[in-house]
Design a protein around this nucleic acid. Sequence first.
DNA 1: CATATTTTGATGTGCGTACATCATTTCCGG
DNA 2: CCGGAAATGATGTACGCACATCAAAATATG
Lengths: 344, 344
Amino acid sequence: MNRPRIRIHDVAAAAGVSLATVDRVLNKRPGVRQVTVDKVEAALRALDYRPDIHAARLARGQALRLMFIVPRGHNSFMDMVVAEIRSTADRLRHERCDIELRFVDAFDGPAVASMLDALSPDDCDGVAVVAPDAPGVREAIDACVARGLHLVTLVSDLPSSHRQHFVGIDNIAAGRVAGRLLGRLSAGRSGRIALIAGSMTLRDHMERHLGCEQVLRADFPHLRTLPVVEGRDFAETTAQVARELLAAHPDIVGLYNMGAGNRGLVEVLRQAGAPGRIVTVAHELTPHVRQALVEGVYDAIVCQDAAHEVRSAVRVLQALCEGGEVVRSQERIRIEVYLKDNLP
Amino acid sequence: MNRPRIRIHDVAAAAGVSLATVDRVLNKRPGVRQVTVDKVEAALRALDYRPDIHAARLARGQALRLMFIVPRGHNSFMDMVVAEIRSTADRLRHERCDIELRFVDAFDGPAVASMLDALSPDDCDGVAVVAPDAPGVREAIDACVARGLHLVTLVSDLPSSHRQHFVGIDNIAAGRVAGRLLGRLSAGRSGRIALIAGSMTLRDHMERHLGCEQVLRADFPHLRTLPVVEGRDFAETTAQVARELLAAHPDIVGLYNMGAGNRGLVEVLRQAGAPGRIVTVAHELTPHVRQALVEGVYDAIVCQDAAHEVRSAVRVLQALCEGGEVVRSQERIRIEVYLKDNLP
DNA sequence: CATATTTTGATGTGCGTACATCATTTCCGG
DNA sequence: CCGGAAATGATGTACGCACATCAAAATATG
């Protein structure tokens, strides 16, 4: 069961070459004939050699340098992401991994693109970027990867790019969950479902919308959605549009906020004094949302774990940079559902 | 921002002692005066020294030996736990961490106790045990810890013992979630809630029962629970008691299975042809449960992530054994809720 | 066949810690 | 103030790998 560890020495012996040659193959250094490369690789596979990660990092001497690029600006969820990046950076400083955090103007595509364009392998080994779906960003990502940087997208994906991994959730599925919660929690009543997004142009909000509509149309035809209104992810704007919605449509039985701005929305719902009458579903477990859930102003929250996402991004980048392996099950970000009883 | 790493050398210089003395303090070796110990520890704190984990593991030479003790027998959830232990063991073999897996007769207290009693620090450095609430187990755990072994409980806790950590969920809260789901998903109908547990003597099942009753009584008084029946966590027994329940109580509007045996229960519900009429909530996302959720036979699943629990146990044991730090937020096991739309 | 070129071997160093040994200093009681 | 014990310093080795250098061998080229 517990065979002794395989070291480079064993591989060299098995392949009938010297340590130096195995080293050249392992680190893709030039000056080895193809036949020899094949021999060594065969031995590597046969013995299932895997480098001792600790010895490797120690020997490499230099720490891994990772870069996180996130939107600046006040959004409780992003605040949680940033906080986790900071604390993870703090912890990993002692594990040969330096993490730098850079902010870019919220969803300003060209700014993100030019920040990515400015990165070279001299600056860092890997990048995690919250990628807006804006012109030029995809090209900048592809160029980064072509330059030899390792890159993952975080929270917001750009599937058509060459990013090596996406750390985040499937927002269509998240929208479906929200839709089903609205349908099931509204106890069979008929009426209108109000939909609030941050902006129509945000890919993730639109995907949530799509998923929600899918489920409502298919399984809850007695619930009809109102046109999506935009809260711009600001508390004040969201409060304003929510007030207008509630005033204009007395037959609203459910409300789904696909974006941020929950502080404002919660305030309006509290004033409306309608907890229990309108089923409300929102995203992300920020402090205000949490409070609303406990009070019963919100019924359910669909959520992604910001801390898990950051840690996952770091692990994936480490694996990419060091030629390690990604444990897929560990890196799958869950679509979490919170009721007042399972708050973490 | 990026101060250079602090090494033992720096600490020695700051404390005005030699490397050897710092080493003695760090590794709690004897032969250092208290005043000197204090001096060194002050320097350690002042410089915020943290050992380079990679160098440390490399130097330690010997791999960490962890032991997992889990109940033998067929339970889909435990199968998932075991599978994850195996795959984690496989991965960590190359990271200086050996994991041994031992089985003990399911919930046979004395057997668990004697297995724990037989362990000495020569056998392993840390233990994770699925601890049944049986006579002698608590004492055996306390003795293990007293012997210098590091020990965490997994899935099933023994809060009164000296275990150093519990990896698992709060089952009362899980029961509350189930209760709220039953209440909210039953769309306001009145009637009876059927409750099935594996056994009244299992602490976690009883805790779930407690939580569920709390919520139903407080927030859904129109739903009245039936006495708990035991399915013994076997598919056949569970099917049998479920059949009897459904036959005896035509006014059942909801059913909560707190234990295992879901394969049998699903079969009965399918035959009863009542999907949509009876709200059903169960635990753990095993293959059969998953299928039932997709079909609509089950409405919601309350769940803990077996893979996460195993990885968490390993990380915590590593930290305990190596004097590292436990990242609490990372090790909090979530009470997950699954609908058909957010299946992983 | 001689020379140039490529490929391979031999060998060494450094990473930061754990752990061991032995020499030296400090301390304490008598 | 002496002797023995305790405390501390000095030093070295090992861990497994990355990376570098130079010599030796194999191969290619004209």
